[in-house]
Computed example of a mutant assay.
Amino acid sequence: MLKAIQNLDDINNAEPDSSDLEGSDLESHDLKSYDSYSNDKQQAQHKLRHQLKNSRYISEFATPLLRKKGAKKKNKRGLKRLIKAQKALGRYLDHNQYQQRYQQKSTVDTNALYGAGWFAARLSDDYNRHHKRLANVKDNDIFW
């Protein structure tokens, strides 16, 4: 899971320059590289979401097996952090998908621009929130 978080951070840091995508002289190569970047980012996010879900289930399963009270407390604290990270990442991915759909729909219906703008505004807050939650998961002590 930590490798998936690091991979997502690396992809986010290697984000293509938005100035390359502006202007009317876009080449098909630039668009293909941006689409490839977007696809890689989505795959990394979904892989991370899947690993968060698996870690959550393993933690829930392992809690009753622990004998020491301190270990149970660490596990419960870690489980809370996993749940918060999973929900925050899920909300970010959902809002990103909704924003893209409204953006596509806005080509036909101008009323959809309001929804696209609202979700675009929510994405920055969701992005910050899920990165904060993932940092908490990274800093979490291993309970076993």
Rank of each mutant, 00 (worst) to 15 (best):
M1Q: 03
M1K: 10
M1I: 00
L2I: 05
L2W: 08
K3R: 12
A4H: 06
I5M: 03
I5F: 11
I5E: 00
Q6V: 09
Q6R: 13
N7I: 02
D9K: 10
D10S: 06
I11M: 00
N13K: 14
N13W: 03
A14Y: 07
P16Y: 09
P16G: 07
S19A: 05
L21A: 09
E22C: 02
D25M: 11
D25P: 06
E27Q: 14
S28C: 14
H29R: 14
D30N: 12
S33R: 13
S36M: 07
S38L: 11
D40E: 10
D40I: 00
Q42C: 00
Q45N: 01
H46E: 00
R49H: 10
R49V: 01
H50T: 08
H50K: 14
Q51D: 14
Q51T: 07
R56Y: 03
I58V: 09
I58E: 08
E60T: 10
A62N: 14
T63L: 15
T63N: 11
P64K: 11
P64L: 07
L66N: 11
L66T: 03
R67I: 11
R67T: 13
G70S: 12
A71M: 15
K73C: 01
K74R: 15
K74Q: 07
N75T: 04
K76C: 02
G78N: 11
L79N: 06
L79H: 04
K80H: 14
K80P: 07
R81N: 12
L82Q: 08
I83W: 00
A85K: 02
Q86Y: 05
K87G: 09
A88H: 04
A88P: 01
G90R: 05
Y92F: 10
L93P: 00
L93R: 09
D94T: 13
H95D: 11
Y98W: 15
Y98P: 05
Q99C: 08
Y102C: 04
Q103E: 03
Q103W: 04
Q103I: 01
K105D: 01
V108H: 13
D109G: 02
N111A: 08
N111P: 03
A112R: 04
A112N: 04
L113R: 15
L113M: 14
G115D: 09
A116K: 08
A116L: 06
G117Y: 05
W118M: 14
A120G: 15
A120N: 15
R122H: 15
L123Q: 11
L123S: 08
L123F: 08
D125E: 14
Y127W: 12
R129T: 14
R129E: 13
R129W: 05
H131P: 01
K132C: 02
R133I: 02
V137P: 01
K138C: 05
N140W: 06
F143C: 06
F143G: 05
W144Q: 10
